Every structure is written in C-alpha cells, then in structure tokens.
Computed example of a mutant assay.
Amino acid sequence: MKDVLKKYLPERAVQPTIQLIQKHRVQLQIVGQRKTRHGDYRKLPTGQVKITVNASLNQYKFLMTLIHEFAHLFAYEKYGNSIKPHGIEWKQSFQLLMLPFLTPEIFPNKLLPLLAKHFRNPTASSDTDAVLSVALKEFDPPNLKNYIFEIPMGKRFRIENGRVFTKGKKRIKRYECTCEHTGQIYVFQPHAEVEPL
C-alpha cells in the first residue's frame, strides 16, 4: 500500500494516511477520472467502508479529497446517518482530520494561507473556492485548457461535452456565455476550465 500511495500523495502524508486507512478498515480504490466528482464515500452492505479517489488528481488535491471522504466516515460514525452530507458535522470532521496535514512538510508554503482560509469553513468541493482552485491547478500536469477569466470577451471556447460558447459580460462573479448551438445564455465560474478556440 505504501508504494502505491507514494505515487499519489505528498511523501510526508503517506504514513499518517496508511494509519487512517488501517485503523478504520477502509477499502481505498484509486479510479480513473470522473467528471462529476473527485472522490466518493460508501458504506457497503457488508458494513465495510469504501472510499474512491480519482487517480488524475495532483498530490495535494488527492490528499484533500481522501480526507474529505474520511470526514464523511467520521461524521456518520459520530452523529448518525440523519445529518446533511456536507453539514456542520462534516465540516468539523474535515477540519479536525485535515489539521495534522496542514504543515510545510506536506503542503507548499504558498498554499498554506489559502488552505487555512478555506478550512475556516470548508465547502463540499475545493473547486468552489476560486482562489484555492487556481492555486492548486498550478500543480497539475500542463494541458491546453484555460480558465474562463483568461478568455477574452467575445471569444469562443469549448467545454468538455463538446458544446461551443462565446464569452460575454461578467456578472458579479460569474461570466455570461452564449451557447452557439441553442443561443441560450449560461453562467460560468471564473475558474471553470475550457478549451479556447
């Protein structure tokens, strides 16, 4: 297990992660990229807990996703199944579990202040925290995509499902973009990744 996790986690995070997995008898499965989620928590009919994490994540997002899923386990064990999936009980569990990992030995110094701010009130996905999302993206392998905020107004771009849009004006935080095929206007987060045309 150690050799496998070394490929996906910061080196100093490997041993504490193994201890969590073994202590709670979690079945960890590293899976191919899913478009709708970075990870998943499930309690199997046998009673065992299964956590899946996307293999495509960089080491810092992989760690955060794995601990995010462990926070579901902790919250449900402590408070029962009637809690909201990303409610206060989950947030407190996530904060508690992430705290030992928020060190310069595990995360780069440039990420630590952003992580500290994010974990004051963690969200269901780090992708909704635009500043943190952009900072974490710097550790991804290079690709041909840009963020919406980098695309000039009036220029075309393609999203993952193949649809083509033209970037329009900025609302308070999001950008209005017109779908070329339907003429409908959609709003995009500034840090949504798209392929410029």
Rank of each mutant, 00 (worst) to 15 (best):
77 E>F: 00
68 H>K: 02
61 K>M: 15
128 T>C: 04
41 Y>H: 07
163 R>G: 07
25 R>E: 10
188 F>Y: 07
110 K>Q: 14
123 T>Q: 13
106 I>F: 11
151 I>V: 15
143 N>H: 12
113 P>L: 02
137 K>C: 08
45 P>H: 10
107 F>V: 12
72 H>Y: 00
68 H>S: 04
167 K>H: 02
92 Q>S: 06
131 V>T: 14
43 K>R: 15
185 I>A: 08
57 L>M: 04
3 D>A: 13
106 I>Y: 05
100 P>V: 01
129 D>Y: 06
89 E>F: 07
122 P>G: 03
156 R>Q: 15
163 R>N: 12
152 P>T: 06
36 T>E: 05
128 T>P: 01
98 M>H: 00
134 V>M: 13
119 F>P: 02
18 I>Q: 09
190 P>S: 12
52 T>W: 03
81 N>G: 13
18 I>W: 05
73 L>I: 01
27 Q>A: 12
29 Q>K: 08
128 T>H: 11
172 I>Q: 11
4 V>W: 10
89 E>R: 05
115 L>M: 11
63 L>K: 08
49 V>A: 12
101 F>Q: 03
47 G>E: 04
150 E>W: 05
82 S>G: 03
37 R>M: 01
56 S>E: 04
91 K>S: 03
175 Y>D: 07
88 I>H: 15
140 D>H: 06
79 Y>A: 10
127 D>L: 02
167 K>V: 03
116 A>Q: 08
69 E>I: 02
113 P>H: 04
38 H>Q: 05
31 V>S: 01
92 Q>P: 02
107 F>T: 08
102 L>I: 13
79 Y>M: 01
147 Y>M: 10
